[in-house]
Design a protein around this nucleic acid. Structure first.
Lengths: 193, 193
DNA sequence: GAATAATTTTAACAAATGTTAAAAATTTTA
DNA sequence: TAAAATTTTTAACATTTGTTAAAATTATTC
């Protein structure tokens, strides 16, 4: 197993956009480092979760849930952002659940204080804009992948992207990400298709 | 048929967020009003289309295309935004095609000049942030609808949302929005299911 | 390390949807 | 308004995938 990837606070922030040291400092001042155990719950769809989280190390799963189904939207690796956009923007319960699949380190930014910075620091306002824009594009790419690629192709992509994690992720999670039943995923893995 | 809905320039801009009159004026100065015929093409996936469009009247279709398939992502009614986010952000060819299904009026905002305003006018920077955030949420809601609702339910939603347009939209477009074949959509309409 | 629990694979069958193609209906054009 | 073109519906069949349940494998706990 490779060594664990750990991303610094500043690198988490700069993932979206260059930021001057002063603005990074202002963001750092409203941030908190959290050390979380495997299987912790970061964001719940029926709770208001306005804050943003940056994943410094570990692995997270983002999913939607109804009474009878659970659909995995994404797996997030270090450097990625964990956010319930609807909750962050509207201060109301959002759509996503986010769990940590591995022991993880996250940086939490307080939304209320962040919104205040948006009004006073134009660099941070543009950083926040960039974050929303780039998250939009990532979500769009996920949507396109799901619409145009087969489950087999997407499984191969996952293997490529998370070789070190994939063994430890439950098949049910992967199947719900691919949009097929667990049985079909087993068939894919067995190369029956 | 009901009378045609027409949204003003200022209302198009304010759809996302309150904006002070001075900033509205600055946006208006870098905007252009375009009167377009039914079936005009606004955005092509292999072309760079950095500018943003606001639909003041008419109807648009947003879709992705591959060699063998075309998938409709969304229908956009007056007040909505027409944008290829990837192209707008990265100045490279984006993913979406956008056609006008009716005679339409759009306001085009020059991206380069808009980016300059983002750096000098913090209200506009936050307006741009809000735009990206709210477009993200709309896209997320579309994704959720597609993931959790049946084609029948989504067809009913469409009928509800666009009663005045739906008759004039080709079945093939609607089927590709619902994610089923045209034959299945015919079955849905015939209430065979 | 044996026993228990959880997860994954395999099998058999049912149901839903796609494909192809032809018929019917509607719209457009001359 | 008749003819041509386009769009929509219907039918028949094949294929894929889901469901349920049992067997096999792997992981966890005592």
């Amino acid at each position: 197993m490779g060594e664990k990837i750990v991303i610094s606070l500043a690198d988490c922030f700069q993932g979206y956009h260059f930021l001057n040291p002063d603005s990074i400092d202002r963001l750092a001042q409203i941030s908190q480092k959290l050390v979380c155990k495997r299987n912790s719950i970061l964001i719940r769809q029926d709770k208001i979760q306005k804050d943003i989280y940056f994943l410094a190390s570990g692995l997270a799963r983002v999913y939607y849930e109804t009474a009878d189904r659970q659909i995995t939207l994404d797996f997030v690796s270090p450097g990625g952002t964990l956010i319930s956009m609807n909750s962050y923007v509207h201060d109301t319960p959002g759509y996503e659940n986010i769990d940590l699949l591995e022991d993880s380190i996250v940086y939490q930014i307080d939304q209320k204080q962040l919104f205040a910075l948006y009004e006073s620091d134009i660099a941070i306002a543009n950083w926040g804009r960039k974050m929303a824009e780039l998250e939009f594009i990532k979500a769009e790419q996920r949507t396109m992948s799901k619409l145009f690629n087969t489950a087999q192709e997407r499984y191969a992509e996952l293997l490529e992207k998370y070789p070190q994690y994939i063994q430890r992720i439950k098949l049910g999670y992967i199947a719900s990400y691919l949009g097929v039943s667990q049985v079909t995923l087993s068939r894919i893995r067995a190369n029956i298709l």
